[in-house]
Design a protein around this nucleic acid. Sequence first.
RNA 1: GCCGGGAUGGUGGAAUGGUAUACACGCAGGUCUUAAAAACCUGUGGGAGCGAUCCCUUGAGGGUUCGAGCCCCUCUCCCGGCACCA
Length: 856
Amino acid sequence: MESYDFKEIEKKWIPRYEDFDGYKGVDFENDREKFYMLIEFPYPSGSGLHVGHAFSMTAADVYARFQRMRGKNVMFPMGWDAFGLPTENYAIKSGRNPQEITKEVTDTFRMQMKRLGFSFDWDREIDSTSPEYYKWTQWIFTKLFEKGLAEKKEMSINWCPKDKIGLANEEVIDGKCERCGTEAEKRTISQWVVKITDYADRLINGLYDTEFIEKVKAAQINWIGKKEGVKIDFEIENSIHRIQCFTKFPETIFGVTWIAIAPEHPLVEEIAAVRNTETRNDDEGHSDTVTQEILKYLDETKKKSEFERTSGVSEKTGIFTGVYAINPVNGKRVPIWIGDYVVANFGTGAVMGVAAHDKRDYMFAEKYGLEIVQVEVPENDPKYVIDAYEKVIEDGLMVNSGKFNGMKAREEAFRAVSNWMVGNEWATKKVEYHLRDWIFSRQHYWGEPIPMVYCENCARDEIGGTTQSHSTTVSQNAGWYPVPATDLPVVLPDVEKYLPTDTGESPLANIKEWVETTCPKCGGKARRETDTMPNWAGSDWYFLRYCDPHSIDVLAEQKKMEYWLPVDVYVGGDEHNTLHLLYSRFIYQFLWDLGAVPKNIPEPYKKRISHGVILGPDGNRMSKSKGNVIVPDEFMEKYGADALRTYLMFMGPFDATMAWNERSLIGVKRFIDKLHNYVCTKIGGQTQGSDSREYSGSTRPTVKILVNKLVRMAETDMANFKFNTVIAKLMETLNNLTREETEISREDLGSLIKVLAPFAPFVAEELWEKIGGSFCIHSTPWPVVDEKYLVDEKVKVTVAINGKMRAVIVVAAGIKETELISLAKQEEKIVKYLNGGKILKTIYVKDRMLNFVMKV
RNA sequence: GCCGGGAUGGUGGAAUGGUAUACACGCAGGUCUUAAAAACCUGUGGGAGCGAUCCCUUGAGGGUUCGAGCCCCUCUCCCGGCACCA
């Protein structure tokens, strides 16, 4: 078969797509319904557009083109999330400046995207590294500060010694830096921290207003990790201090047999002191030994890395302090232990030990011979005694729990016990979250400068009036002032060296004339913040900027956002579920509170869809070291952009993980060749009519039936991102049409091409022109289905005996049941089975199946 | 451990509770060719049979149903997310 000349076709149509108005979203248009199609904007890396980009962007493009043909006013924008470490590292290595590098790579990306036929609205292109853009990223930060959501804190953070950068919790995977795999260290530096935790509840509740796919919602809810429970104060014997424990299971309070505190717990010293006074009274020598042992233990735990301690691989260890606490519900004395399984910065840094009903507690109790008090038994086995940690009782009854005995665990007892406890001064209801505050400082050059200024004089004045808090992390906001909006953006200055400093300061710290500035408050001498923002900052709000990309006075005009928002479909990767997607929802909610975004739109994204992953031909994740990386350009060159796009969509379900297979791509190329030839042959000699009257003979030409069924199927599946089945149906239809060898009207040829058009825009454009259509096919309406061709005149009815298929008979559609039964009873194959048996029941599903239920 | 999603031919995958294996790849045979490639045609889940035909088959085992790949229960394994989180 002849191969069509895709190179010629692409060469012809790419220039015509440049600045083509049909691909532009029109602000405020009322005739058409708006549709905001968003795909995550890429980080433009030096290696060019990846096949993963090509895959997800093609899907978004197919969807955008489809929606346009369905008559929507589609906004489908693209931009660059260009701040980030790889560019900075490349700049360090090559000695070139990141601005220049960024321009180069974005040019490459843009060109590749155009070659792939993506119908982006290039008028709305944005670049997160342009001062016009990051002016507003900075503005948002100043607002966060003004509203008390940004704080400068001396904090222990994850630190990557190789990248020389602070990492957010989310950027540490298995104790290692997400980017380079180096073991993360702990460092204490002064950092800007954004209190995303203040929005934890809203971030959960807001999800109920969205149509995100289940796994995305689950991932976010899980990450936020809301836990409702009770905070209980335990008195320490011979001390005025109390240990606070948080528990999700307050109903197990009668089962507490020890308290464990983290080695870093602020009361460790106090407890050691209690121990000393106690023992000095009776046995001095012994006291020293115990204290020595505790100190030794603390020393050992400190040597363990955070990863070792929290990965769950190491065995839990602990040491008895020699001091006791009092369980307030029953006055029971329980030993206080120091345990390395207790996480200092979660909850209160102290936990109550309930060995009978917690796996980890059980193991700890067994190891150190601690008492085990069971407070729950299974409902049907009240004598049951827990003998292994696996046996955790889910639905049971309370025992050994005073007046709560016999209550149902866990809901009833949970409510009763916690309500009773919080009636006392030693217990309060408390909600804990897994979500942590967002560390917002990076000690790097290639990012948005944090627009803050520190004035020592003003700081002194401020501190005079405030009291110090006892929190482990102390806010140091005193003396810090946001750069006024009129002075934004704080432009990233040129530097000579992009290399971060070992002291943990960004290279900006070395530029004296930039750092030194005046205090926005007193006008005196002050210093700029030299840290920059994390790479998430620019992507938090980019989808708002697309609504009004050239705005100067505001981040985007309210009216324009009101028109376009919310984003109708947002395509992205699962790796961003708890990062970008959560951060940007938070920032949107914050801007909503500020009144900077439309009041009637509380959530920015209506629907979120996850794209799948393309593996290398060997079935492994693509990586340079494995040598299995697929570069889209190579295959565009060999088979054309249309074939590549169509193949990507044909590979499998949109959210699946699929291995690259060039043979399959060739198969798709063959199909496009076939379709191209089919259309060319059909329009070859004669001029075809434009409607069904042209078909001679039948009032129900097979061609009409095939085409209408195709269109109906395509429009339903396209809407649900089921592109692989649409292409399969298109292939099937073409196979059937070729077999038919009949005439086909221009209208029906047109419908065929239109179904292909979103997938293979260039060849579709060419064929559309060939059959006499005018530019551009993607601006023409989607074919209208003529329902009468969807209804079959004759149907195949399955005849079954006891649900087992025995025959298929062809009858007129809508046949009466009685008529069908008598026809079926005459069928040879059926007669055989009916003979001698008795029909107990007959089940008839209209036009589909008839089932005789017989006595066996 | 918790949460989310899976398991269908040699492979990627189709199947509103109603003919399982669409579509494609691969493979086999054929046409064309001196030959090969490409292209095209035919066949292709497993088993029994010369054959018509019959039996079996959607990770395993139960259940609901006239009828289950699909719904329910139990289990195994795989992928993704979270996790000494109290």
